[in-house]
Amino acid sequence: MATNTATQDHPEITLTRRDGLKLAGLGLGSVAALGVGVGGVRAVTNGAFSAGSGDPYDLWHDWSSMTGIERVAAAGVLACNPHNTQPWRMIVDGDTIDVHSDPSRRMPLNDASGREHFAGLGCAVENMVIAAGSAGATSQVTLFPHGPASDHVARIALRKDRARQDRDLAAAIPHRHTNRGPYTSAPVDLSGFTEQSSRIEGANVLWIAEPTTREQLGRLYVEATKAITADTAQSTEAFSWFRSARSSIDKHRDGLTLDAQGLSDLALFAAKLLPAQSRTDGDAYWVKATREVHTATAAAYGVIVVDDVTDRSAQVNGGRLLARMHLTATALGLGLHHMNQITERIDRDTASGNPDVFSARWAALLGRPASGGLLSFRIGHPERTPGLSPRRSLDDVVAG
């Protein structure tokens, strides 16, 4: 899921809030000196000393000790989802969980077709299925029980069973985080994903690891990123989900943050000392990071493919498979970073009536029609561990 943030990553980072301060020229003593006075106040305000702790992060730390239906519902809240909008509402009634879309969390400019929104709901559904299975319960999932136009996306009926399954994936739930940092040059053995690739009916994974095709796809990602940043309305909408100050994180408990950008410890600390970056400066850095980090260090790309990317059930099922891919990557010690700039531009141009400049090239690289490529991501061996993303509490999203 595309990452339009106020700060991005670089393998040998020269992070700036206005792309002028070069950390390579800052010694540790200089950075420490910035920690006093105004810089020190900013460090506290921006959470330099409280990253990954406090109420917005409690669910990551508490999940493993939870039990019963609460544990299952919490697994859904911890699922990967586009731009960390957390698009779900849940109703728990006995052993049944009803998953509803929250339309207020749609991004109509960056996700004009709704594919990311409903895929994120699918990720939540599958996280709950996996959590329930590891506890010895089977899940009967019914998609759109009141029809595809309804916000009632799924009903999960749980039934106790002796068999326990998906234990490795369930164990990965509290450790799964999108890794936007640099990856090493080591190749990835994709055979570890084979078992999961066909687990969700109607969705599959297409891998792009051949160097030439991978490089061509990387260039297309960069071009799409530039197109998003050149579209003021699309860029502004995405930037509205960036939470810079700790007070904003505590208030919203969603969106993208500095902590989740895969920065080195030194770069992250310095970023929190400096004044907040503007949208245009953040966009420029995002383009640079996409070119010099994200595409430059991707060992392979994965694309979730379905029959029709506009079909709501296909979107949800694609998200269900994406959740399995991300948890599998986590269990294997791999980094995974959702990258949907290309499809976001395809949908944006289609909705705006503009010429579609990406579908034909997207289809050529996939070897199939663009209408089948739902979501995409890069994968590799990460150089560093990503930070936690904020999450809303169960009380915020679950009724029952």
Results as ranks from 00 to 15, higher is better:
residue 3 T to N: 11
residue 24 A to I: 10
residue 55 D to K: 10
residue 394 L to W: 08
residue 258 L to C: 05
residue 211 P to L: 04
residue 7 T to P: 06
residue 217 L to E: 04
residue 396 D to I: 07
residue 57 Y to E: 06
residue 93 D to L: 10
residue 36 V to A: 14
residue 53 S to M: 11
residue 132 A to F: 06
residue 104 S to H: 07
residue 184 T to S: 14
residue 325 M to C: 05
residue 299 A to C: 06
residue 293 V to E: 15
residue 43 A to P: 07
residue 42 R to H: 04
residue 88 W to R: 01
residue 40 G to F: 03
residue 303 V to K: 02
residue 140 Q to K: 08
residue 327 L to R: 02
residue 251 K to C: 02
residue 186 A to E: 14
residue 200 I to E: 02
residue 28 L to W: 11
residue 5 T to C: 12
residue 300 A to D: 05
residue 368 R to T: 09
residue 291 R to P: 11
residue 380 G to C: 01
residue 69 I to F: 09
residue 227 A to M: 02
residue 224 A to G: 02
residue 342 I to R: 03
residue 102 D to K: 00
residue 98 D to C: 07
residue 244 S to N: 11
residue 120 G to C: 00
residue 177 H to M: 14
residue 300 A to T: 04
residue 234 Q to R: 09
residue 265 D to C: 03
residue 370 A to K: 01
residue 93 D to F: 09
residue 351 A to K: 05
residue 197 S to F: 06
residue 52 G to H: 06
residue 96 T to H: 11
residue 271 A to H: 03
residue 210 E to R: 11
residue 164 R to W: 12
residue 42 R to T: 05
residue 128 M to F: 07
residue 190 L to I: 10
residue 278 S to Q: 08
residue 46 N to T: 06
residue 32 A to T: 11
residue 303 V to R: 03
residue 231 D to T: 05
residue 187 P to M: 04
residue 86 Q to D: 03
residue 2 A to Y: 07
residue 28 L to I: 09
residue 184 T to D: 08
residue 395 D to W: 07
residue 356 D to K: 05
residue 90 M to L: 12
residue 51 A to Y: 05
residue 330 T to V: 03
residue 237 E to K: 00
residue 190 L to N: 08
residue 214 R to Q: 08
residue 3 T to L: 13
residue 349 D to F: 03
residue 138 T to N: 12
residue 379 I to P: 01
residue 311 D to Q: 02
residue 31 V to G: 09
residue 301 Y to Q: 03
residue 114 G to A: 01
residue 102 D to A: 01
residue 23 L to I: 15
residue 320 R to D: 00
residue 336 L to I: 15
residue 31 V to L: 14
residue 11 P to I: 04
residue 230 A to P: 06
residue 185 S to A: 15
residue 182 P to N: 07
residue 383 E to P: 09
residue 132 A to T: 04
residue 183 Y to S: 07
residue 69 I to D: 08
residue 128 M to D: 04
residue 19 D to N: 15
residue 229 T to P: 02
residue 176 R to V: 05
residue 85 T to E: 00
residue 246 R to E: 11
residue 117 H to A: 01
residue 110 N to M: 10
residue 377 F to S: 01
residue 194 T to R: 11
residue 63 W to H: 14
residue 93 D to T: 13
residue 315 Q to E: 00
residue 222 V to P: 08
residue 195 E to A: 15
residue 68 G to S: 14
residue 63 W to T: 05
residue 258 L to E: 05
residue 88 W to I: 00
residue 56 P to W: 11
residue 130 I to F: 08
residue 241 W to I: 02
residue 156 I to E: 03
residue 300 A to P: 05
residue 232 T to A: 15
residue 313 S to G: 12
residue 64 S to V: 15
residue 58 D to E: 13
residue 85 T to D: 01
residue 68 G to C: 13
residue 241 W to P: 01
residue 343 T to S: 07
residue 192 G to S: 09
residue 117 H to G: 00
residue 42 R to G: 04
residue 394 L to M: 12
residue 172 A to P: 09
residue 234 Q to C: 09
residue 314 A to H: 09
residue 235 S to G: 12
residue 216 Q to S: 11
residue 158 L to P: 04
residue 238 A to C: 08
residue 58 D to W: 09
residue 119 A to R: 00
residue 377 F to A: 02
residue 153 V to T: 04
residue 12 E to I: 14
residue 66 M to A: 13
residue 286 W to N: 14
